[in-house]
Computed example of a mutant assay.
Amino acid sequence: MNAEFRFRPVSFSWVTIHPNPKGVVQFIGGAFFGSFPTLFYRYFFRQIFEQGYTIVALPFRFSFRHWPIAISLFQEQNIIAEELTKIAKQLNYKSDIYQDKNKYLWIGHSLGCKYITLLEFLSGEDSKNILDECTKNSEIQLKSIEDSLQKIQHEKLSIKGQGSLLIAPDISDTQSAIPKPLAFVAHFLDRVGLGVLPTRKQTQCFIKNSDLFNLTALISFNKDTIAGSEKDIYKDEKTRENSDVAWLITHLNNKKFGLIHKEIPGKHLEPLGIQIGNYIVDLNPLDKFIEPIASRKLEDLTISFLSELENRREQ
Rank of each mutant, 00 (worst) to 15 (best):
S13C: 15
A186V: 07
I178Y: 06
K103E: 05
D232S: 00
D282C: 08
N129G: 02
L286I: 05
N253L: 01
I145L: 15
D190M: 07
E263R: 07
K151V: 07
N129S: 13
K94P: 00
L131F: 02
Q75K: 14
V24A: 07
T38N: 03
V196N: 01
I17T: 03
Q141S: 12
L272Q: 08
L215M: 13
S304L: 11
K156C: 01
K156D: 09
E120N: 13
F27K: 08
S63M: 06
L197P: 00
K128I: 12
A186G: 13
F221Y: 11
D147L: 04
A294V: 14
V15S: 01
A70R: 04
T135I: 13
K160Y: 03
N92R: 15
D232G: 00
N284V: 04
D282F: 04
E270G: 03
E125P: 01
T203G: 08
Q153K: 12
S220C: 13
F40G: 07
S307M: 02
G124Y: 02
F49K: 10
K201I: 10
F36A: 15
L269D: 14
R42W: 11
W247L: 09
I274N: 12
E146W: 04
Y93W: 08
S307V: 00
F64A: 04
A57W: 04
I264T: 01
E125D: 13
F305L: 15
L189Q: 05
T174A: 05
L165C: 06
L298M: 09
K101N: 13
V24E: 12
